[in-house]
Nucleic acid binder design. Structure first.
Lengths: 182, 182
DNA sequence: CACGATACGGAGACCGTCTCCGTTTAGCAA
DNA sequence: TTGCTAAACGGAGACGGTCTCCGTATCGTG
């Protein structure tokens, strides 16, 4: 990659992160290009689809994810509380941008999604928490990771779309947690 | 309303129902106008916002909703099964169109939404079921109708976006139901 | 420094939303 | 039936977003 290309690439990602946080995932890409001081052509060459840009933005995000799951697993307390803490982290992680919960949760079931690999990091982080509970023998029978992601992702999605705060989300997570534990 | 106006109004609603079912809630409105054989101006005069058109489409839907809740309440069996049957009806009702679950669930918390009144029909139908369970003393403490709508709406939303069938949705509903019952 | 590969960026095609306003029509009254 | 007016129509076009094409500029190597 040529030096000027890399400069533009980095700058676009940086600006896009800012713009998406401000305006959500459907912000204008020409706007991103303009703010980054490049032509739309340049942006679309580096990132042919909107998703490719999102993918690039998420590089730093994957680190956070693993970190969060490790933090949750390190918790020395009741299983229910461990699960709830993880759920809250999970919701926070996918809600960093407006529209994130819907985007990420639906990408999980779509093998062609460009952000699939990023989502898999999340699913496997979730899996570690779920496995731990299964080993403790406190998990409902027949539950799999994907189902948990869908349930929590669903809550995060409605919270995102309805501008609900953590206080409104917590009881919903508790209901799901209690449904998952035996 | 003049006769020709009414004719066009009705025709637009009819066509829109068809187009939305085919292409989802973000189908082109000019396309709707074209298929209805009217100019875009006519469409936008009758329905200044996309939501107004959705609202009109939903007139027949509200009848289905009350019917469904009555059917659920008439069920003579275990509370858990009653709740699950209602949940399945609920999901089906809001998933009639692609994008419906997200639209309807987020409209519930938005007092300015033009489809608010339609959603209230749904919330109060849900409320009747929840009240029945509360009277039976099988409901978890501190649960309110809105929370239930959000949980089930969340599941329906991810199912809608991920093209999940009833078979994948059922276990999720069971988990939520068990979390809601004591 | 020269030259080929690489990257840039803007003009513009395309599409959806929505408005403005000149034209048409319904429906009433004489 | 005819004439009139308020109501309704509908299409041209402004606007904004997406994305492409291609002539131009730049990098970095020989």
């Amino acid at each position: 990659m040529r030096a000027d290309a890399k400069r533009n690439y980095d700058r676009i990602v940086e600006v896009a992160r800012e713009v998406f946080r401000e305006q959500g995932y459907d912000a204008s890409l020409d706007e991103v290009a303009k703010r980054a001081g490049v032509g739309p052509g340049t942006l679309y060459r580096h990132f042919p689809k909107r998703e490719n840009l999102l993918d690039a933005i998420m590089q730093s995000w994957v680190d956070r994810v693993t970190e969060a799951s490790e933090k949750a697993l390190a918790y020395e307390g009741a299983d229910r509380e461990l699960l709830l803490r993880w759920f809250e982290e999970y919701v926070a992680l996918i809600s960093l941008h407006k529209g994130g919960p819907a985007k990420i949760t639906s990408a999980m079931g779509d093998p062609t999604s460009p952000i699939l690999t990023k989502c898999q990091v999340l699913t496997s982080a979730n899996d570690r928490v779920i496995e731990r509970l299964r080993e403790d023998g406190v998990l409902r029978d027949g539950v799999d990771t994907v189902q948990v992601c869908r349930l929590v992702g669903g809550i995060a999605t409605v919270a995102d779309q309805g501008d609900l705060g953590a206080a409104a989300v917590r009881p919903l997570l508790e209901i799901v947690a209690d449904g998952l534990l035996r």
